[in-house]
Design a protein around this nucleic acid. Sequence first.
DNA 1: ACGGGAATTGGAAACGTTTCCAAGAATGAA
DNA 2: TTCATTCTTGGAAACGTTTCCAATTCCCGT
Lengths: 334, 334
Amino acid sequence: MDIRDIAAKSGYGVGTVSRVINDQPNVSDRARERILAVMAELGYEPNSNARYLKMRSQTPVAVFVMGVGNRMFDDILGPLQAALAREDEQIVVTYLNGDVDEVRAAIDYQQARHPKGMVFLGGELESFRASFHEIETPSVLVTADASQLGFANLSSVTIDNVAAARSAVGHLLERGHRRIGIVGGNRASGQIGELRLRGAEQALREHGIELDYERDFEPCDFIEVGGYEATTCLLERTGDLTAVFALGDVVAFGALRAIVDRGLSVPGDISLIGFDDTAFSQYAVPRITTIRQDAARLAERAAKLLLSALRDGSPATHELVDFELVERESVCSL
Amino acid sequence: MDIRDIAAKSGYGVGTVSRVINDQPNVSDRARERILAVMAELGYEPNSNARYLKMRSQTPVAVFVMGVGNRMFDDILGPLQAALAREDEQIVVTYLNGDVDEVRAAIDYQQARHPKGMVFLGGELESFRASFHEIETPSVLVTADASQLGFANLSSVTIDNVAAARSAVGHLLERGHRRIGIVGGNRASGQIGELRLRGAEQALREHGIELDYERDFEPCDFIEVGGYEATTCLLERTGDLTAVFALGDVVAFGALRAIVDRGLSVPGDISLIGFDDTAFSQYAVPRITTIRQDAARLAERAAKLLLSALRDGSPATHELVDFELVERESVCSL
DNA sequence: ACGGGAATTGGAAACGTTTCCAAGAATGAA
DNA sequence: TTCATTCTTGGAAACGTTTCCAATTCCCGT
């Protein structure tokens, strides 16, 4: 079933049929109508490969999820796909975990396929960076801030991580906490952890406290088990913590378990604050106070940015979306 | 950069170059070597659109995720993508929530693109069924059992849901529970909920108890909020429950919260058992006893099945993988 | 009724592959 | 050495579109 079959059956030429398919001007209403009717009757569907071959623009948008197990990304993926689908854009997803070489290989692989666009989900700029210099495809980074990097085609949408972390720690400070431990992420520059740490540091400093990275910080991956182990470690190291700031909700979740396993209670003995507001933090026992980062909104803005780059060739933009501290039950006043 | 450029530069014809690219026989070692060298030198990458156009087999594998918010599927997606990627197969993901028309439209849309294969993630057979009769593409259903349906190209990989549910409820029964409430899923046939309910019913009957669906069962979607509301409802309706069986872990998570919100404790007042063993159930407070359904294994088997259908045209198969009851802290003996 | 510009139309060429067929080269048996 | 196989090779045709150019038709002002 061809465009030629449609042409033959409708009595028009292939050119005209193609124009109808692509909603182009210079087609009489009569022709359009007739052709549409024939297409419907025959159940014609254009062959996307032929189309892309000719148009030279290509395969679907490639999405990279950097950090398997971080629920935040799962929450973004759905809305992102939906938003793009509304504009007829497909996504091809690749799940990656930290390894730089693996990331590199995956990006190369997808690049070779000439995706029309790319989306990177992940806070760890570092893992991407090595591959970024060659990126000419319109791309958007979600969750990691690419504004420092000067790539012409690299947009990003993110919250102000520094400010958010500052408000989280500020929240703890206001409630009288002075000995605050931090778990999750790591200090390497360009990592999202670094930004959040910087925010925490600022808040602390405003209260005249200097963050002791050796003692009060324990890095870990953004997965439950990471949070569990890091928190255990932290708790063993210093006995006087009254609050823990987890740099991500999955981490907070592991942290909660670790605290309870040491026979302590949240927030009775230790207050806990998370980051992201993934679905389960409002169902956890106790409900976890956290920084709300709206996954749907992030996804939607990312789609918007990508789409406008795709359609009108809009230049890269770095967009900030709002965050919000949502108070629940895991923090108490001292 | 063409296959023709490679041909010209290497001194061979396009036919030979194509054979080299596709690892076909009847190419001399000398030719192969030379052509490979030229390809490497020029950084040649085949154009997949041209290739697929010609080969008529097409675009990537289409994956449908039926039930946004059910973490189980997020856990399957990663390993599935990884397994398929190892064989150079891309996946295009579409996220869907229940609506039959939406599902229908999405499947039609993807079908029109002639994916070489399809994977359906979701327990709700019903939503798919309307679209299934036209499926000619090799497909596999993960988590829902398609063995009743007789589609030639429709494989499935799943655990024995009936047996698993029976063992879950059996576990409760053995510990002395007699008044057991059930939340999650629904009774419509072909739904995964129905299978799990059937298992529960069997276990109950073995102990001479008849399941009263009106009183002791409350259906809901597989998301946290569903579990929360359904459980609240159930608890309000009957005051004498000593245990709740949640038909999915996300549901269990909402259930836990609902129970606690009524001032009851788990497992002190009410024992809770889940289904799936998604990551957070082992971190919840208390840790949730559940049926382990190995997401990675499910994904891997699904990939295997799909791949063999793709490569050798193997016929549809219905595969059962093992489940396991994992005892944690949310169930106590009466 | 006529001329001219705009709107519509048809069809050939091109996109980058794979595949098929025919031809040429190599091998081995007699 | 010769003939019959088998291996290797080149190149044309085809996959189903879009796009461009030229040709036709239409419409309107005079």
